[in-house]
Each structure stands twice: as C-alpha cells, then as structure tokens.
Design a protein around this nucleic acid. Structure first.
Length: 422
RNA sequence: GGUGAGGUGGAUGAGUGGCUGAAAUCAACGGUUUGCUAAACCGUCGUACGUCCUUUAAGAUGUACCGAGGGUUCGAAUCCCUCCCUCACCGCCA
C-alpha cells in the first residue's frame, strides 16, 4: 500500500508511474488525497471536542471531591451536549477512514523507473541469457513422457486422491523433490539466509499484509470454517514474521529462506499450458526473502538476482533473465526479474523464479519499520524471490538431460540424490 | 472440545473507577568517573494520527492505544458482554 504522503507530494509523477503499470483509474489518486483531507478535518474537530469532554470530566471529579454536587451536575450537562456532537463525528470518521483504506488498497505499487513500458509478456526485456541449450536427438520426448517412462510421478492417482494438478511423486521422483529442496536450502543458508519452516496456512491479516488480499483472493484455497488460506508461496507466512515490528538498524538486513508447498487455484488455465508439470495446483518451492534499509534495496535486488542465477548455473540449465514490463508485473512489485529455463523437448521457456523489490509497499501494509541512523522510525523495504520453484526445474532437468541410458543429473545434485542418473 | 488461570511498554512486573500513558526493576542508549573492564552516579528511554511553531531539525500541544471488538459511566488498564491468544489439567490424537 502506498503512503498518502507519497501521493500528495508528486501527484503528477505518481499518475505517470501508474500508467506504466496500465492502471486504469488514475483519478483515484485525487480521490485519496481528498479523503485524507477530510479525514484530517474530521479528526481535528473530533479531537478538540473530545478534549473538552476530558477536561470537564476531570473537573467533575474535582468538584465531587469538594462536595460541589451542583457544579458537577451542571458540567455533566455540558458533557452530554458535547458527546451528542461526538457521535455523528465518530461515525463519519469511521466511514471516511474505511473508504480511504479501501481506495488506497486498490492502487498497485509504483513501478521503478527501470521498468519498461509494455502491456504483456511480449514486452518484457531479456536482460541476459546463460547456460547452453542441449542438442537433443530427434526422438527426444517431453517431460510427461519421461515421467511415465521412469515412473516418477503418477498424475492420475494424484487426481484420484485430490483432483487434477495435484501430482503424486513416487520413487525417484519423490526423492528428486527432496534432493532439490535440500540442495536449495543449503545453498541459501550458506549465503547467510536463516532457514524457516512456516505454517502452510495463514489468516486474513497475513494474506492482506503481503498483498494477496484483496487483489488475488480467487487464487488462494480458502478454509472457510476457520477463515484460513492455504499459502500460495512461503513469502506470505515468512514475510509476516515481521508484521507490526520496529527493527533496529543493526538487525538489517533480515535474510530468510523457507521451503513450503504452494497451493494455487489457477482458475482458467487449460491445454498445453497445464500439461505435465507446466502448471499444477500444488508444488514445492524454496523462497528467499529480505527485509532491508530502503537505500540498499536495489543493490540487494541485484544481489538476489545474482544468487538465483548462480543456482541455475549450478544446475547446468539454460536460462534467461527478464525484466518485466509494467503490464506484466505483479500488483505489489516495484521491479521484478523473472527467470526462465529452456525446456528443450517442449522448446519452451518456463518461469521458475520471480525476484522482486516491493520497496515499502508490503512493509507499509505490514507496519514493518526500523529506526534509522537519526533514530527516526521509517518503513523498511521488502524483497523476495524463488530459489527455486521445483516442477518446472524438474521438467527442464528431465527433458534437457535425457539420454538413452537414463537422465543425467547435474553434479551438485549427486550427493543429495544419491546417484548420478535417473 | 471441556474446566480453571491469565494477556499491561524491549523484558520482568505493580496497578480494582478520577491524582495512571501507566510505579518499580532490568535491558538499551547518552553522559560523568576510570589506565582498561567492572561498579557507581546523572540523564534519555512507546506507537499512531492531528494541530501549532520553525526553512528544516528540534520543540509545544491534542486525541487514541494496557490482546481485539462492543457496552456501562461525567470519567475505564480497572466494571460488564463477545471473540482471539497463552498457560495448566482433562479429553482426543500424529
């Protein structure tokens, strides 16, 4: 959520930035400022009246103590009058505040000046590519066939147990999941990230704080009896560790990593998009999250991008890094880099990570602040990224490394998987 | 799920209707002292939203906040109701 003061100081610039994100209601910026003005006016009025009530109440106490009943009674009359004024004011304030809040929440984060204009995935900018695309033999097959061949995942039984998009990993398929998770976590903790294993369901306040609510309500599975949401990413529970906190300068940067399953409803997806592991409702992911001083957040973003890039290099996969354009970015992000790996048999790029700087958009919702060098309290910046999402990594590993004598795994995985090939 | 006890500032913890935005202690921070460490002493030490003042910083001031939300009262941390959470015991259970 953006701060009203940011809107106030640079209304024109804010609207320009919102246009980059293809936000359709720039007039809401003015609406918000108007509502905030009204809020202030109402509060001033309320406060001065309430101050009179408080002073009179004290005086009544004093008069009673002196036994001056008549004086006290007279004052009570005054208080009754003021209180009658306070009631409607209070209601009006609540209405205006709610409207302000509701409107503020509709505004997406402002994209950084590095964000290219554009309306869809086509307009994303390739920052760099790495790794080598393999030369596959003519008879190379997509990962869903390899999965069958080596009996790694049973999609049909997963669908029987739950529904489509809930894979049942089996044998070496299951073990590969475990190996990848363990490798990713080790890689991250070696880089100074603290490992967490968070709750896989969150309450409404947490889902709101990281911006899943109200924007992505339909994306999450909702346990209505308890009003809990299955997490779509570990970002939600882990970032919320620092909800409503004030950190010390020396606590920063906070670096966290967590494995979690991710649950996504993905309503409306179909066809080739969802074949095999391309898109599923439940998948495994390891996430990295940082909470940092505002001045450092873009340097940290670069650091995180490099961190994920190295991981893909270690996995020996062909990848490319995209800077997302305004139209393709997430609601809460200021700058996002997507990582895609090339799945050679499908001849498709598959997204496996998304690393974003949210600046103070999440932390403002979360009220995650810190005391800066001058002792002033201000909002921190938050960032996160996947390192990595498993299914598409697996799809790519299988397709790109297929050979007649099995699937060759990259060196870094040997000791985790306990073998060099599948 | 049942019964009981609780939830107060960074921590411990006092506070059962007005003098309490909140004692005391500890921690933290600044200073004095000191060869260094320790100790002692002095000071500072909540958040949010307003208003005034100032170029800003700072300062002054108002309102709200003692788990959350309602209620009683001229006045609520304190009394009442609902909910949440923690702890103990019981039940169930990986």
């Amino acid at each position: 959520m953006l701060q009203v003061n940011v809107l106030r100081g640079n209304t024109a610039e804010v609207k320009e930035r919102l246009a980059v994100k293809r936000f359709a209601q720039p007039e809401l910026v003015d609406t918000i400022i108007g509502l905030d003005d009204e809020r202030k006016k109402l509060q001033a009025e309320f406060d001065t009246t309430q101050a009179k009530v408080n002073a009179a109440s004290k005086e009544i106490g004093r008069l009673m103590g002196q036994g001056n009943k008549e004086g006290a009674e007279a004052l009570k009359q005054d208080v009754a009058g003021w209180k009658a004024m306070l009631e409607p004011l209070k209601e009006k304030m609540a209405t205006v505040e709610k409207e302000l809040q509701d409107t503020l929440v509709i505004l997406p984060n402002l994209p950084s000046t590095l964000v290219p204009a554009g309306k869809s995935a086509e307009d994303n900018v390739v920052v760099r590519e790495g790794g080598n695309k393999p030369d596959l033999p003519k008879d190379a097959v997509p990962h869903w066939d390899l999965i069958k061949k080596y009996d790694l995942i049973d999609f049909e039984t997963g669908a029987k147990i739950t529904g489509s998009g809930f894979p049942l990993y089996k044998g070496k398929g299951a073990k590969l999941q475990r190996a990848l998770i363990q490798y990713f976590l080790d890689y991250n903790t070696e880089a100074g990230y603290t490992e967490y294993l968070p709750p896989f369901m969150v309450n409404e306040a947490s889902a709101f704080a990281t911006g899943q609510l109200p924007d992505k309500e339909g994306q999450m599975y909702h346990a209505k009896d308890d009003n809990y949401f299955l997490i779509p990413t570990a970002e939600v529970p882990v970032t919320n560790i620092y909800r409503d906190t004030i950190l010390k300068k020396e606590d920063l940067p906070v670096k966290m990593t967590a494995y979690s399953p991710c649950f996504r409803r993905e309503a409306g997806s179909f066809g080739k998009e969802v074949r095999g592991l391309n898109r599923v409702h439940q998948f495994e992911k390891v996430e990295i999250i940082q909470i940092v001083e505002p001045a450092t957040s873009y340097a940290v973003l670069d650091e995180m991008v490099a961190h994920v890039e190295k991981l893909l290099q270690n996995l020996e996969l062909p990848y490319r890094i995209l800077r997302l354009c305004g139209g393709d970015m997430g609601f809460t992000s200021a700058l996002t880099y997507d990582f895609e790996v090339f799945s050679a048999a499908q001849e498709r790029w598959l997204e496996v990570s998304s690393v974003s700087n949210f600046e103070s958009y999440q932390t403002n919702r979360m009220k995650c602040r810190y005391k800066d060098a001058d002792g002033k309290t201000q909002l921190t910046h938050s960032l996160n990224g996947s390192s990595l999402a498993l299914p598409r990594i697996v799809a790519c590993l299988l397709e790109n490394n297929q050979a007649t004598d099995g699937i060759k795994l990259p060196k870094v995985l040997h000791r985790y998987f306990g073998a060099e090939t599948i």
